[in-house]
Amino acid sequence: MTRTILIVDDDRQIAELVDIYLRNEGYSTAIAGDGEEALRMFEAQPFDLIVLDVMMPRMDGLELCRRLRRDKSAETVPILMVSAKAEDMDKIMGLMTGADDYMTKPFNPLELTARVKSLLRRSYQYSKPAKSEDDGSLFIGGLKMDRTTHKVEADGRLLHLTSTEFGILYLLASQPGRVFSAEEIFQHVWREKYFESNNTVMVHISKLRDKLEQETGDKLIATVWGVGYKIDA
């Protein structure tokens, strides 16, 4: 099945360069010049992943990301955010609005392509049907996690998680009591090499905890200082 990717960037040259590289990998692509156009295109047809620039006129990437994450049809679609802003706080802001990954400009198109492949693999990994002897469901802390539908429920209420948040929660819940380091979580969920200065895991766990506490009254994920994160049985 051909995956369809929406490229959102007001710099046409960059958008067309990304488009060429992704098409060469066999993906189907579409280009939007700003957030408003991208929102209209997403409402008209589904996309499997979005490459999203931050600095754009009319509606920037952060606002578009917020709106998409409030849309049930878009809440699990992987978003790769790109920006000329390289400061840690800018990256954190991007991840906190719901992006799954973040790259700074200028970027190597080959690296961007690799990130896209990784995000799509991860999205598929947690949504594919489970084997017949394992229906993919986990129960912990009042939550039910279903890998076959990529859904998490708390007392029958659906929690709206991104594919990355689901991946982290499912990993921790699959082995209650075990402490996973940030490096282990990154390698399991992102399937990429981890760098010591990478705060991506911390930001996603912070966002995930907020969602869990809002819905269940319990942050559920415990921090073991200097070691990593766990969910107690």
Rank of each mutant, 00 (worst) to 15 (best):
Arg40Trp: 14
Leu80Trp: 04
Leu171Arg: 09
Lys91Pro: 02
Lys151Met: 08
Asn108Ile: 11
Met41Pro: 05
Leu138Glu: 05
His204Tyr: 04
Lys230Tyr: 07
Leu22Ile: 05
Pro78Ser: 06
Ser174Gln: 04
Gly61Asp: 00
Pro129Tyr: 01
Asp34Ser: 05
Ala32Glu: 14
Ile185Tyr: 02
Met1Val: 09
Glu183Arg: 15
Thr223Met: 07
Gln45His: 11
Phe47Val: 07
Phe139Ala: 06
Pro57Thr: 11
Asp34Trp: 03
Gln187Leu: 08
Asp10Leu: 08
Glu183Ser: 12
Gly35Asp: 12
Ser132Leu: 13
Arg40Gln: 15
Ala38Ile: 15
Thr223Gly: 02
Ile231Cys: 04
Ala99Ser: 07
Thr29Asp: 13
Leu171Asp: 02
Leu172Arg: 07
Ala182Glu: 07
Leu171His: 12
His188Val: 00
Lys131Thr: 04
Pro106Glu: 02
Leu158His: 14
Lys219Gly: 10
Leu17Lys: 00
Asp60Ser: 08
Leu159Trp: 02
Leu212Cys: 08
Ile14Ser: 05
Phe47Asp: 04
Arg69Ala: 00
Ala154His: 05
Asp88Ser: 13
Asp101Tyr: 03
Asp11Lys: 02
Ile231His: 01
Tyr170Asp: 14
Tyr21Met: 07
Glu192Met: 15
Phe42Cys: 14
Asp210Arg: 12
Leu49Asp: 06
Asp9Leu: 08
Ala130Ile: 01
Pro176Ser: 14
Thr223Gln: 06
Leu62Thr: 06
Leu159Gln: 01
Asp60Ala: 06
Leu159Pro: 07
Lys207Asn: 13
Trp225Tyr: 10
Arg69Trp: 03
Thr104Leu: 02
Gly228Phe: 14
Asp210Thr: 15
Val51His: 06
Phe139Ser: 09
Thr200Pro: 00
Arg191Asn: 15
Val203Met: 02
Ser127Ala: 07
Thr29Arg: 13
Val189Phe: 00
Ser181Asp: 00
Ser163Cys: 13
Leu159Tyr: 03
Tyr229Trp: 13
Tyr21Phe: 11
Glu183Ile: 07
Met41Val: 09
Lys72Leu: 08
Leu49Asn: 05
Gly61Ser: 08
Lys211Ile: 10
Thr97Pro: 00
Glu87Met: 11
